[in-house]
């Protein structure tokens, strides 16, 4: 177990530095923040002076080494646009994004499990096919269509929910549904496939022959075992969900990390982009590590394989 934790921590450090390095060069090659900050209506001399002030006129390699040294102390520098400490900005936006993605994940799982189990248990029935098809709709439709459509129906036409923002629980309903719809189909299919496999196992036949009731077989013997791969998928899908959250936050004007990152990337606000991506990487890698550890706790076979 200790070995697993140490390995995870090392992997985390390498991932973080790797992503940070790639990002450092990619974003610097993609455009100049000062020209953007000052806009087309500023003079070239002013822009040069500002670049020099922020050290952006130094060779890229020098900048990289300097920043790498600073990053070791978690100092990402200050926002070029706003002047605030970049890591503070990212952390202040993190809570909202975590609320959004975690709620969407929970909603997707809460819907996918019953749908998936039903689709497996009654796979010949027409209604389960309709139900599964409905979840596919969520995956097939892009967020920038689903989001505005939900706004049009639930907020504008029926006036049941607010349009934009993150001030109350009601504000969260539409964005969480929008984001959850991305994941729902994938999870439901996964649950169904796993259930079908598990239900074909010998021990399920044994359970049936013992005369156990259908519900007990489905829930206790079937679902519990089918859940293990589903948990793994939840970990890997979390990263995708964070990406989709950027778009969701933009559509619903939610002041989260994604919204900040989008603004910062468009403005080439290097320090904020780097701090934001650092925090997201930390969360995604952290969640995956937690899933792996949870996995070993749930499934004794995995634990034995690691210890051996």
């Amino acid at each position: 177990m200790t070995r697993l934790l140490v390995r995870r921590a090392l992997e985390l450090a390498i991932t973080l530095i790797g992503i940070w390095t790639v990002l450092f060069f990619v974003i610097r090659l993609s455009g100049d923040p000062i020209a953007l900050l000052m806009g087309p209506n500023a003079s070239a001399e002013q822009i040069e002076a500002m670049r020099a002030d922020l050290g952006l006129d130094r060779p890229l390699a020098t900048q990289y080494l300097l920043e790498l040294k600073r990053m070791a102390t978690l100092d990402f520098g200050r926002s070029i646009r706003g002047g605030q400490r970049a890591l503070d900005l990212a952390c202040s936006r993190l809570a909202i994004s975590l609320q959004l993605t975690a709620s969407a994940m929970l909603l997707a799982v809460a819907l996918a499990i019953p749908v998936g189990i039903a689709a497996a248990a009654w796979r010949e029935r027409r209604w389960t096919r309709w139900l599964l098809g409905l979840t596919f709709l969520g995956q097939a439709l892009p967020i920038f269509w689903t989001g505005p459509m939900l706004i049009l129906l639930f907020a504008v036409t029926w006036q049941l929910l607010p349009v934009a923002g993150w001030q109350s629980l009601a504000h969260g309903v539409l964005p969480v549904i929008t984001l959850a719809s991305v994941l729902l189909a994938k999870l439901a299919r996964m649950v169904r496939a796993e259930m079908l496999e598990v239900l074909g196992q010998d021990y399920i036949r044994t359970a049936r022959s013992k005369g156990l009731p259908q519900n007990t077989i489905l829930m206790v013997h079937g679902a519990r075992n089918a859940m293990i791969p589903v948990i793994t998928v939840m970990g890997t899908e979390f990263g995708q969900l964070v990406g989709a959250a950027v778009l969701t936050e933009s559509i619903f004007a939610i002041p989260g990390l994604g919204d900040m990152l989008l603004n910062a990337a468009l403005a080439r606000d290097y320090p904020v982009v780097q701090a934001g991506v650092f925090v997201i990487t930390l969360v995604v890698v952290g969640v995956n590590a937690m899933v792996d550890i949870a996995y070993t706790l749930i499934d004794p076979r995995v634990r034995h394989a690691i210890d051996a």
Partner: peptide, 18 residues
């Protein structure tokens, strides 16, 4: 004042009175 970058969302908030 708040930033709502998406024009259709901005219009929706006007129609609902937000």
């Amino acid at each position: 004042m708040r930033a709502i970058p998406e024009a259709s969302t901005r219009v929706a908030t006007l129609r609902t009175g937000e």
